[in-house]
Design a protein around this nucleic acid. Structure first.
Lengths: 153, 153
DNA sequence: GCTTGACCTTACCATCATTGGAAGGTGCAA
DNA sequence: TTGCACCTTCCAATGATGGTAAGGTCAAGC
């Protein structure tokens, strides 16, 4: 199976498959005589694993940990569970934070006429509110896959 | 007021202030004889506005739209409200998506012994689940500030 | 006046996951 | 043989941010 076929079979683009190989997330594929990458069923299995983990918001580094555990069947269960639960907690925290943002925005919008009058608290409050000396700790500017916990290695 | 002072007054790093200038989000600051950037109260006002919008998850492009509306007071209210509500809706959708991910993970973890036995559905289901021919449309791989709506220009 | 240290300047490079393109080689079918 | 779809590697860009290096400036203390 060549890389295009593997991409269709796993939902990961050929670009990303090569990238994952280049960063060592997956082991280098075997090559045909012409130099084409050739994928076995086991490779496909691993790529599907990666695709699922990616859909669940795991970062590449987290996937690396999961794949290590996968390879090390003897100690998989407990560690994987801990990793998954920690990740779930982080996802929930992100979700809460997004909801807070949304609530703030809707609150501002509620006090905005929405007609042609120029005064609108969305604009005014934004500008007026002083940045109080970092009580709100600067969030890592967000991307779901940010590493927030250091996983059990 | 020079850039360091402006940074402390607004909560935006000097790096980012220069960056925002370089991409045209803010107009170029006046310069002192020595070439130092000099900021007026109006500039500080704009930077605070940006800081608040950033905290609410707006992308640079979205902030650009908001700043345009800010400058164009005659039609601000309705457009800003629409922009804010659309953004709020997007934030909620992201939050829901994160919660779905979390729920899936916790569900998998529930069926994982968490002891030394090697079988753990977190691992097994990941790998087994086939990637059904793109029913789940590939999410834009997430960052809160992704442009999802095209704002009223 | 000189030194010191804190600030400023520009210009790069790195990050993370991903996409795009260019330039060239390969496989297969008509 | 031609053509097209696929493959290869390499290089660059994205967005928002952090870092660093090499050099200029300012103000205080001596």
């Amino acid at each position: 199976m060549n890389i295009g076929h593997a991409a269709k079979a796993t939902g990961i683009s050929t670009k990303m498959i090569r990238y994952y190989e280049s960063i060592g997330l997956i082991s280098p594929a075997h090559r045909s005589q012409a130099g084409y990458r050739v994928y076995t069923d086991d490779d496909i299995h691993a790529l599907r694993f990666i695709n699922s983990a990616r859909d669940l918001g795991f970062s590449v580094e987290q996937m690396r940990d999961l794949l290590d555990l996968w390879g090390d069947r003897s100690r998989a269960s407990a560690d994987v569970k801990a990793l998954a639960l920690a990740h779930a907690a982080m996802l929930e925290e992100k979700a809460r934070s997004l909801q807070d943002m949304s609530r703030t925005l809707r609150h501002l919008a509620d006090n905005c006429h929405g007609d042609d009058r120029p005064d609108c608290p969305i604009i005014d409050e934004f500008a007026v509110a002083p940045p109080p000396r970092e009580l709100r700790k600067r969030q890592p500017r967000f991307g779901v896959a940010a590493q927030v916990y250091s996983p059990a290695r």
